[in-house]
Amino acid sequence: MKLSKNFTNPLAANNPVIVQILGICSALAVTVKLEPAFVMGLSVTFVCAFSNLFMSLLRKGVPSRIRIIVQLVVIATLVIVVDQFLRAYMYDVSKQLSVYVGLIITNCIVMGRVEAFALGNKPWDSFVDGVANGLGYAFILVLVAFFRELFGSGELFGFTILGDWYTPNALMLFPPMALIIIGCIIWVHRSINKDLQEK
């Protein structure tokens, strides 16, 4: 039962983005459209899951003094794999994501989960934790991208949803709106989960 709790917790009640405020750096710029947001979410899930797995396997062999640099090497290697994969098979999306794929390295969620969870837990638990946190991140990304693409260009995944009667609100495509949408999501989330509210 512990495993399933580890899995569901990061998806809602302890979401890495809106509760722990981690990984915003690369999160918001890729949310203009759903497709890059989706790909970015999956990439982070992949990196987070496997960096957790590998660091958990290595946790007894790595002296704690040099662990940060070992983590960075493991994470950077995984990110290079993702980047090369995207360039080979999804070139258009990889162009849209530009430097943000590289910034998965400095995504606090990945580092944070390795530090907080993988270094003290068994490989399988760590893997599940990584997947769950990655999906929690992806969920917020897709939610923000849904609103921005729907109201900003009247489309979802590139298909027209709102017809000619709708005048696209170009402001939704500008960076500041991503921040305001995230602010509103936090507002709704904390109104439901009252224990998270600051005094």
Partner: peptide, 19 residues
């Protein structure tokens, strides 16, 4: 508003500053 305190309002302020 209680639910906006902390990060919530910080995001909205940043959005307005960005504009």
């Amino acid at each position: 508003p209680a639910a906006m305190k902390g990060p919530g309002i910080a995001f909205i302020i940043t959005g307005l500053m960005g504009m």
